[in-house]
Design a protein around this nucleic acid. Structure first.
Lengths: 204, 204
DNA sequence: CATCTTCTTGACCGTTTGGTAAAAAGGACG
DNA sequence: CGTCCTTTTTACCAAACGGTCAAGAAGATG
């Protein structure tokens, strides 16, 4: 099986398509997105795009899978040997940065969840579950050592996901509510969330 | 302008359509949903359905607007004269109940946000903003009185929205990660969140 | 610069989509 | 039970959709 290395044009165009697809899928979801819309966003004709990716489904899977590793890396970085509040604080900060810098990725992920994760379900139940269980166990051990309040680590992780991704997924709502004073919302959110979680987790 | 009261059949069918539309729109979003799919879910032919609602757009607006008041009523119930932690705790509990009992409504709302809230934008910027500002002011006054920790009430409200709605919007993910032990997830979440927010908000 | 491969295009195809028209079927009510 | 209004159905339409095809344009390579 011959696998020749991609040409410069191939690399560029595949990249433009993935960027365009991210935009469209994040807004309209898989079913709502059209290959015409993606091609238009990528600045090329539909048949031209389909020369690089044979189907809409393939584009979607490529974008989604390309995103996963980046998306989960902050959690993977949470270290059992670190100081609990430092580790959790760093995780919150990193996740807020990602909501600010990669809102489309967050919304694409949210869209996949809303339709029942037909593509990612397997990964959620295996790889993701395994990692979350592992990190939740670390949190439990911190709690048993009395270094943080006793709690189920799973729900702590969910709470951090929810609060941080909210600023990407519900960006319209956040901006609508905050109005003109909303410019510093990511910094304010980071400060608020660290206070909330730090005080909420401190052992008592 | 004659407005006759709806017949029994009209009332029933409009209701069936709205229920079916909620299901389909919550899963596939506005663009991804098809009138055929909604009609099928409602158990009637497409032209029959369009006899009751002239366009897909009209169905969507009807469902969305019918949802809004219910959706925001828990926040409206937050009372300045109550005891802060009791009020906030009751709000969290009510929101978790809604995530459990009305997940489709939550996901429909999420879908509308993800595509930039083209229908709800106006309401977000006027009615919603007004109410959130009002409630955030109450929270600020509690903070000034030293009854809770100082904070921006807006972000507290966002955090409660995010953490509670997460259990509806990301239900697949939550269930995938929790596995078979996930049955009590709404109760566990309520307990966890109350602990988190109570400790996180206590004045110090 | 000739040749071979890669890339792009316009024309096209069958299916799905949102919606319409007209007529048949059903229900309410005197 | 006949009449009138409501409801449902069948058949249909134009546009949008995902995708194909063959031929031409542009790049790479000797």
């Amino acid at each position: 099986m011959q696998v020749r290395k991609p040409t410069r044009i191939q690399a560029e165009n595949r990249d433009r398509i993935k960027t365009a697809a991210l935009e469209v899928f994040a807004r309209d979801g898989f079913r709502g997105a059209t290959v015409d819309a993606i091609a238009a966003a990528a600045g090329m004709s539909k048949p031209n795009m389909l020369y690089y990716f044979p189907t809409k489904d393939r584009i979607y899977r490529t974008v989604l899978e390309g995103l996963l590793e980046t998306w989960l890396s902050p959690l993977r970085a949470m270290n059992a040997d670190g100081e609990p509040l430092r580790e959790i604080g760093a995780y919150i900060e990193r996740k807020i940065e990602m909501a600010r810098d990669f809102p489309l990725e967050s919304r694409l992920f949210a869209n996949e969840m809303l339709r029942g994760a037909p593509i990612l379900k397997d990964i959620l139940e295996t790889d993701l579950k395994q990692m979350v269980d592992e990190k939740a166990a670390i949190i439990s051990s911190w709690a048993e050592q009395g270094r943080i309040a006793p709690m189920d680590g799973h729900h702590l992780i969910f709470a951090i996901w929810a609060t941080t991704q909210h600023y990407a997924d519900f960006d319209v709502q956040v901006r609508s509510v905050l109005g003109d004073e909303g410019d510093g919302r990511f910094n304010d959110a980071a400060e608020f969330l660290k206070q909330l979680f730090f005080n909420g987790l401190r052992p008592r």
